[in-house]
Amino acid sequence: MAWNLRRIRVGKGLSQEKLAADAGVDRAYFAKLERQAVNVGVDVLDKLSGALGVQLVEFFEMPEEGAEQPSVLRGGRKPK
């Protein structure tokens, strides 16, 4: 789930801070979600999917074999 969350967020050029604010989720908690340091409830996933404009099921897609780890945005900014 965390892999897909980061992949979708970075693909849309959103920082953790921006997405957390848009979804009404604490930024520190959101960062822990992406690091797989906390468990997440369906209510939070629903907020995140709404803020990202994706269906909830997209968080649970299996990555293709050999897929690279999603990149991170440098300094919370959109990639150039």
Rank of each mutant, 00 (worst) to 15 (best):
M1I: 11
A2H: 15
A2N: 15
W3Y: 15
W3M: 13
N4G: 05
L5H: 09
R6W: 03
R6L: 10
R7P: 11
R7L: 12
I8H: 10
R9M: 09
R9Q: 07
V10R: 09
V10T: 15
G11V: 09
K12I: 03
K12M: 02
K12V: 04
K12Y: 01
G13F: 01
L14H: 10
S15D: 06
S15Q: 07
E17R: 13
E17Y: 08
K18P: 04
A21Q: 14
D22I: 07
D22S: 13
A23S: 14
G24W: 13
V25G: 11
D26A: 12
D26Y: 04
D26M: 02
D26L: 02
D26E: 05
R27S: 07
R27Y: 07
A28D: 09
A28C: 04
A28H: 08
A28K: 11
A28L: 08
Y29H: 15
F30E: 00
A31I: 13
A31W: 12
A31V: 14
K32A: 14
L33V: 10
L33N: 06
L33E: 07
R35W: 02
Q36R: 14
V38C: 12
N39M: 04
N39A: 03
N39I: 00
V40G: 01
D43V: 11
V44C: 12
V44Y: 10
K47P: 02
L48F: 03
L48C: 03
L48R: 00
S49T: 07
S49N: 04
L52C: 01
L52S: 10
G53N: 02
G53Q: 00
G53F: 01
V54L: 05
Q55N: 11
Q55K: 15
Q55T: 12
Q55C: 12
Q55E: 15
L56S: 05
V57W: 07
V57G: 05
F59S: 03
F59K: 09
F59W: 03
E61S: 08
E61Y: 06
E61I: 03
M62C: 08
E64A: 15
E64F: 09
E64G: 04
E64T: 14
E64Y: 04
E65Y: 05
E65K: 14
E65S: 14
E65T: 04
E68L: 08
E68M: 02
Q69E: 15
Q69H: 12
P70K: 05
S71Q: 14
S71E: 15
V72R: 06
V72Q: 12
L73V: 00
L73G: 00
L73I: 02
L73N: 03
R74F: 13
R74H: 11
G75H: 13
G75A: 12
G76C: 01
G76L: 06
R77W: 04
R77I: 04
K78C: 08
K78M: 11
K78E: 09
K78S: 08
K78N: 06
K78W: 08
P79F: 00
K80R: 08
K80P: 13
K80Q: 00
